[in-house]
Computed example of a mutant assay.
Amino acid sequence: MAWNPIEAEALLNESEHLQPTRLVKKIAGFVFPSGRELVLSRENDSEVTLYVDAAPGHMPDVQIKKVYEPTDRRMGRHADIESVARSLGYSYKAIRVHVKSRTGLELLLHWLRYA
């Protein structure tokens, strides 16, 4: 099976450094013990997309797709993002990344723990 959001969600659920927070139809939220949140988009069958508050610029398997600056306009991000991860909502900066592999996600999770 090719790398996809189902596999990514399984890895996130199995991680000893994350706790699931809230799941809605198209996105799933997770939180680190530090309080840092991330959101997995579940709506695309073939591309693993995460929303995070920080992202490395030098990981080959983690590609920054879009940076969302804080705004009072409720558009441009996933509509349910605030209900799943408040710190990635419209009032905060959020970064949408494409994770190309399992190894890429493992490295990103390690980076997020210490960034």
Rank of each mutant, 00 (worst) to 15 (best):
W3V: 02
N4E: 00
N4Y: 01
N4F: 00
P5R: 14
A8Q: 01
A8I: 02
A10Y: 15
L12C: 01
N13K: 08
N13E: 08
E14N: 15
S15L: 01
H17S: 15
L18M: 12
R22V: 08
L23Y: 06
K25F: 08
K26G: 03
F30A: 11
V31H: 07
S34C: 08
L38T: 08
L38S: 10
V39Y: 01
S41R: 15
R42N: 12
N44H: 13
N44P: 04
D45F: 14
E47D: 11
V48A: 03
V48N: 07
Y51K: 03
D53V: 00
D53C: 00
A55K: 10
P56A: 13
G57N: 02
M59H: 01
M59T: 03
D61P: 02
D61I: 04
D61G: 06
Q63T: 01
Q63S: 05
I64G: 03
K65F: 04
K66N: 06
K66S: 11
V67R: 07
V67Q: 02
P70V: 03
P70T: 05
T71V: 07
T71M: 06
T71A: 12
T71I: 01
R74Q: 08
R77M: 14
R77Y: 10
R77E: 10
H78V: 06
H78R: 14
I81S: 08
I81D: 03
I81M: 04
E82L: 12
S83Y: 14
S83R: 15
S87K: 15
S87P: 12
L88S: 10
L88H: 07
L88M: 05
S91F: 12
S91D: 11
Y92I: 11
Y92M: 11
A94I: 02
I95S: 10
R96P: 02
R96C: 08
V97A: 01
V97S: 02
V97M: 04
H98L: 06
H98T: 04
H98Q: 07
V99M: 07
V99C: 05
K100C: 04
R102M: 09
L107S: 03
L109I: 14
H110F: 11
H110M: 15
R113W: 12
Y114A: 05
Y114M: 09
A115V: 05
